[in-house]
Design a protein around this nucleic acid. Structure first.
Lengths: 210, 210
DNA sequence: CGCACACTTCGTTTACCATCAAACTATGGC
DNA sequence: GCCATAGTTTGATGGTAAACGAAGTGTGCG
């Protein structure tokens, strides 16, 4: 279970049960123990409970042990249709590889930081981030005034890593549609990244999508 | 057991049994397993079998795990009389802190290297090392001709780390006595490092002894 | 040579822990 | 409001591995 989590992605208890080839109940008690021992952390989203490694310490220990064991692990392959995996909507914001990439990029640029006031999986825009997004045409102040969480880490279904949700996520999708960076599929949640969009994402955010 | 070995010192199976608070027989089967799994290596000397960590990999893994456990280990304290621990003879060569320090220093200076032709715990002098020792007044060629092993790793009883044995070790002790770097105690195996010797060891080998 | 010591091998016992099924709780969708 | 799905709790069970004592092997010392 732990080794399957070293890629940084989160997994549900049922998936981890399958990975370990044990029954869901066995997996449950095991994961409970791993949680109390601070090896993994849980993140409940809807009726799914996503488990991921607690921190870099744990990954380091696993790495060191796998060196001893001389094992090479086979990587996780998501079995989501590739069109949906690349980019799609999640309620009213961007998910899929694109969503996760944006999230990672915004954190790397320090536009987004973990919220100090709210819970664990909430974000704040830094002054830099607010300026940059205003410059792109997002009304950050308006988004702040809405009666909903401003920005949150939403766990991505296909990538199993967080993307940006909340009012800010919605504003980003709105912007991307308005600027024709992406177009919405009519009968699915898939998003198409336009040629123009690909260029813009690259120059504005340094995002290089396959 | 493994944690008690992270300091790089070797320990006997009886000591490790005491460390783990189990019977000698239990320790024996456990150590056997650790050996086949390449976590520790054995070195038989007389009727003692010294166990030590197999390599840096193992130490790294233990380190990573202890970070997770948040434990701080209490270090090994040798219970040997300090006079004997500092310097003494082992058969006909130098043992104790001084012996181990010389061994470590010679390896660091690349005067001594693991023997390519003989077994695992044998040494060869490098050309550099031979020159340096000849310059000090050791007849290296004569030592080579003796019908005994030239240089070997002899596990130090108090330090639990190797010092230099064999013909080379004997020649080193002979030199140290002749140059009055050390004087031999009359009724024990203890060696006294003279003031002069301390100075010489410092300038010639960069050895700083307490 | 024989004793003492260091350690290992063997066979047996015991305790524990992983595992599962069944029952239970929680969440989302219609 | 009800069903389906996701996950957890609980209690019983069996397999396994850790542990020990007793007997065996090997090494050094007098």
């Amino acid at each position: 279970m732990l080794y399957s989590l070293v890629d940084g992605r989160a997994r549900t208890s049922t998936e981890l049960a399958a990975v370990a080839a044990v029954s869901p109940s066995t997996a449950s008690v095991h994961l409970q123990r791993l949680t109390t021992q601070r090896l993994v952390k849980v993140f409940a989203q809807g009726k799914h409970r996503y488990y991921s490694l607690e921190g870099a310490n744990v990954a380091a220990a696993l790495e060191a042990l796998s060196v001893l064991a001389g094992a090479s692990r086979n990587p996780f392959v998501p079995n989501t249709p590739s069109r949906l995996r690349a980019a799609r909507t999640c309620y009213d914001h961007i998910a899929g590889t694109l969503g996760v990439s944006l999230h990672d990029r915004f954190k790397a640029l320090v536009w987004l930081s973990a919220s100090s006031t709210h819970g664990n999986n909430r974000y704040d825009l830094t002054p830099n981030g607010a300026n940059a997004l205003e410059a792109l045409g997002i009304d950050v102040e308006a988004a702040r005034k809405l009666r909903r969480r401003f920005a949150s880490a939403c766990l991505d279904w296909s990538e199993r890593r967080p993307h940006i949700g909340g009012a800010l996520g919605a504003a980003l999708l709105e912007l991307a549609l308005k600027k024709k960076w992406v177009t919405q599929d009519l009968d699915s949640r898939a998003l198409d990244i336009t040629k123009h969009g690909r260029r813009e994402l690259s120059t504005r955010f340094g995002l290089d999508l396959e």
